[in-house]
C-alpha cells in the first residue's frame, strides 16, 4: 500500500517537514557528529589545542582496565535490573490478573513508581539503605549483615540495581498484565481439563504465550538499564566506590566533564551509540515483527 500525496506547492512539504528536521539535526545529528569528530582528537592538558590522533582514543579505551571493568559492571547491572524488575512485575501481574475486587485501586497504585524521577527514586533507596540511618540497613544489621554501600562495591551495585529495577516495575507490570489479559480464558480452562496443575499451566501455556511481551520488555529494560539509569547513579553512588557502580553512561559523563578527557569520553559515547544502534536493530527485526499467535 503506497499512498502518494500530491502537494500543489513545491515548498509546502519541506515547510511541513522543517520543524521535525530542525529538531533532529540540532539535537541529534549535530551532537552525534560532534562526538564522532571529538573521538578522533586529543586535547592537551590545558585545553588550548587539540590534534588528530585517528583511532588512538579507542585503542586506549580497550586497553584500559577501568573501561573494561565498567563494561562488565554495566552488563551485570542491566541483566540484573531486567530480570529483577521483569520477574517481580510478572509475579505482580499474575496476581493482579486474578484480583476481582478493588483491582482498579491495586493497578493504579502499582503504576505510581513510574511517575517518580530516577534521581528521586535513587535518593529514596539511598536513604533507606543508609548505613547510619536507613531502615533497610538497620534491618539487615539485625539479621547479621553489615550493609555499607559507601565502602562495599557489591552493596553499592546492589543498591542501584534495586533502585533502578523498582522504577521499571510499573512499566513492565502494565505490559505483562495486558499480555495476560489477552490470553483467552478458555485456553487455561482447556489446560485445566487436560490435567495441568496451576504451576504447569503457567509454565507450559501462559509463559510461552507471553513470550512476545517478554521479549519486547527484555529489550526495553536492557535499553533502560544502559541509558536511563544515569540519574540513579549520579544521585547516589557517583560511580563508586572505586568504580564498582560506574556504568558506561556514567563513565562517559565522569571522564568527559569531571576528568576532562573529551576525546576519550567522545570515543565512549561513539561505542554507546553503536550499542544503541545494535539494540534498535534487534528491536525492529525481532520485536516489531514478532510471532503473532
Amino acid at each position: 500500500m503506497h499512498k502518494k500525496v500530491i502537494f500543489r506547492h513545491r515548498w509546502l512539504p519541506y515547510a511541513l517537514l522543517f520543524p521535525q528536521l530542525a529538531i533532529t539535526i540540532v539535537f541529534f545529528i549535530w551532537p552525534a557528529s560532534q562526538a564522532l569528530y571529538q573521538s578522533v582528537l586529543l586535547e592537551d592538558a590545558f585545553g588550548l589545542s587539540s590534534k588528530f590522533v585517528a583511532l588512538e582514543n579507542f585503542i586506549a579505551l580497550f586497553e584500559d582496565p577501568h573501561y573494561l571493568g565498567s563494561f562488565k559492571v554495566t552488563i551485570v547491572f542491566s541483566v540484573a535490573v531486567a530480570f529483577l524488575s521483569m520477574g517481580f512485575s510478572l509475579l505482580l501481574a499474575v496476581m493482579a490478573d486474578r484480583v476481582i475486587k478493588g483491582s482498579m485501586a491495586y493497578k493504579t497504585l502499582l503504576i505510581w513508581p513510574y511517575a517518580i524521577a530516577p534521581a528521586v527514586s535513587g535518593v529514596l533507596w539511598f536513604f533507606m539503605f543508609n548505613p547510619t540511618v536507613g531502615i533497610n540497613a538497620w534491618l539487615l544489621r539485625q539479621m547479621g549483615y553489615d550493609w555499607n554501600h559507601y565502602l562495599d562495591g557489591g552493596d553499592a551495585l546492589l543498591l542501584i540495581i534495586i533502585a533502578s529495577a523498582w522504577q521499571q516495575i510499573s512499566y513492565n507490570f502494565l505490559f505483562f498484565l495486558a499480555g495476560l489479559q489477552a490470553i483467552p480464558r478458555s485456553l487455561i480452562e482447556a489446560a485445566a481439563i487436560d490435567g495441568a496443575s496451576p504451576m504447569k499451566r503457567f509454565w507450559t501455556i501462559i509463559f510461552p504465550l507471553l513470550s512476545p511481551t517478554t521479549f519486547f520488555l527484555l529489550v526495553v529494560n536492557i535499553v533502560y538499564a544502559f541509558f536511563g539509569t544515569f540519574g540513579v547513579v549520579h544521585a547516589t553512588t557517583d560511580g563508586g566506590p572505586y568504580g564498582a557502580t560506574s556504568i558506561l553512561v556514567y563513565k562517559v559523563f565522569n571522564d568527559g566533564f569531571v576528568g576532562l578527557d573529551l576525546g576519550g569520553s567522545a570515543a565512549q559515547s561513539v561505542i554507546l551509540m553503536a550499542i544503541v544502534i545494535g539494540l534498535t536493530v534487534v528491536q525492529f527485526r525481532y520485536v516489531e515483527r514478532q510471532v503473532e499467535y
Binding site: P184, E189, A190, A192, G195, L209, Y293
Partner: peptide, 18 residues
Amino acid sequence: PADRDIAMVFQNYALYPH
C-alpha cells in the same frame, strides 16, 4: 476438572497456539 474423566470441546476450539 482434570479428575472428572471428561473432555471438552470449546466454541473457539481453545487450541494451544504455540
